[in-house]
Design a protein around this nucleic acid. Structure first.
Lengths: 228, 228
DNA sequence: GCTGTTAACTTAACGTCGATAACTCACCGA
DNA sequence: TCGGTGAGTTATCGACGTTAAGTTAACAGC
């Protein structure tokens, strides 16, 4: 917890300048220590060069600060998703790349990702706004494109997006929580999972199989007995 | 934080009796308040009817207590998975039911599930032991059975189990973190996702399509242009 | 240039938290 | 009966989030 020299008082209109500095200091602490326990109001204040109560001039409480930190974090995600999708024409491949980019983004800074998915006070948070306006919208666009080409004929686009998100989040979250499992050293497992989510129903549908349990089971049984 | 009457001192050999009471008190606090902030050493001690330092006679620190709480929690999961699998002969259907049971279990007590997947100090935790010895083993058995029937011909069983777990955890975790999304009021979305994970690769494999991006894309293009 | 206002920040403090050290006391074997 | 020890207490520490009240510097108006 390095103690910075005293700041000179900010000029009159620039209260939000310090707010930005506070968010950045909190982010840095989070990334450097990899542990949200390292982010105390006092530590953040000390790093910015200010006393703890000053934080409360810019954020209602600690949760609000962390919410702002996560909002800024997910703004970066939007850029990453855009970069991952750039130049990828096929929407299927694009969905996959965006999913992988999401996982990479999450595991790159575990502390930030973890904190973004903690319980937060009810009511609309900045994180949710940023997420729905950027990443969620971006993936929705890709899935909509896929749906337009005939994938998921009987499913709502929103459902597919949620499934994709849940899969990507599941891999990322579980990798962070249980890093000792046999994940391999690349994202092959994530890739396989995401591909299954994108294509599973499509493949079954193209085989003329509905997703009712009995039908699937019967079809598989037939395949197993007939094939090979 | 109800303050219980003073306990009478326990007889000589029964140190572990209090340990059990402590775990249960902590679990109750967690479930009742739905918030891990409600579980303080002081609150737990007060509910048991004991002073705070007594907790440390039975648990090294707070994390160790919470680890024990989660371990006991996941012991129940093993029973739930067993119940969900009971009487389901088809391994495919069984995998699905176990996955759904996992999701139901998680969202039934959000506070407990959340706390179990927080960051914890490195080294083997009780939670991990319980998980790998019960739920993980149980799902592995089902997947092994599926693999024995010819599903996942080119995949390791461990990989498939991880994918299944990641998918179930992803849905559960995201439902808990973002309950305002359009999840519907049943677990249909989870079911679809789990089915895709169980069957996605199988279906593609049976179509004679490898999981390489180019191959899948080409195959889908052909299907789209040829079919309908 | 002086002055009043107010935004930006500080000082001091409260209550709660996790954790530790040092103590008390009942029980039990010898 | 008497030391030992397991079970639990009292007292206390430093750090935490947060608030109330005070201080100071930048600007607006004259």
């Amino acid at each position: 917890m390095r103690s910075t020299a005293k700041r000179t008082r900010s000029p009159r209109g620039s209260g939000e300048l310090l707010a930005e500095e506070i968010i950045e200091a909190a982010s840095e602490l989070l990334v450097e220590h990899g542990d949200d326990a390292a982010v105390s109001i006092r530590a953040v204040a000390s790093r910015v060069g200010v006393t703890p109560p000053s934080i409360y001039l810019h954020f209602g409480d600690k949760d609000e600060l962390l919410d702002a930190v996560c909002a800024r974090y997910f703004e970066q995600l939007d850029g990453e998703l855009a970069a991952a999708a750039a130049g990828v024409d096929d929407p299927l491949e694009r969905a996959l790349q965006q999913g992988l980019a999401y996982v990479r983004f999450a595991i790159a800074t575990p502390a930030l990702y973890r904190i973004a998915f903690r319980q937060h006070a009810p009511g609309p948070s900045k994180v949710d706004q940023v997420l729905s306006a950027s990443a969620f919208t971006r993936i929705s666009a890709t899935v909509t494109e896929l749906a337009g080409e005939g994938f998921y004929p009987e499913s709502d686009v929103g459902e597919v997006v949620l499934e994709l998100w849940a899969a990507a989040h599941g891999v990322a979250s579980l990798m962070l929580a249980k890093p000792d499992l046999a994940w391999g050293d690349d994202l092959r497992l994530a890739e396989t999972l995401l591909r299954a989510v994108c294509l599973g129903r499509t493949a079954l549908g193209m085989l003329g199989v509905d997703t009712e349990p009995d039908e699937v089971r019967a079809w598989l049984r037939d395949q197993r007995h007939a094939g090979r």
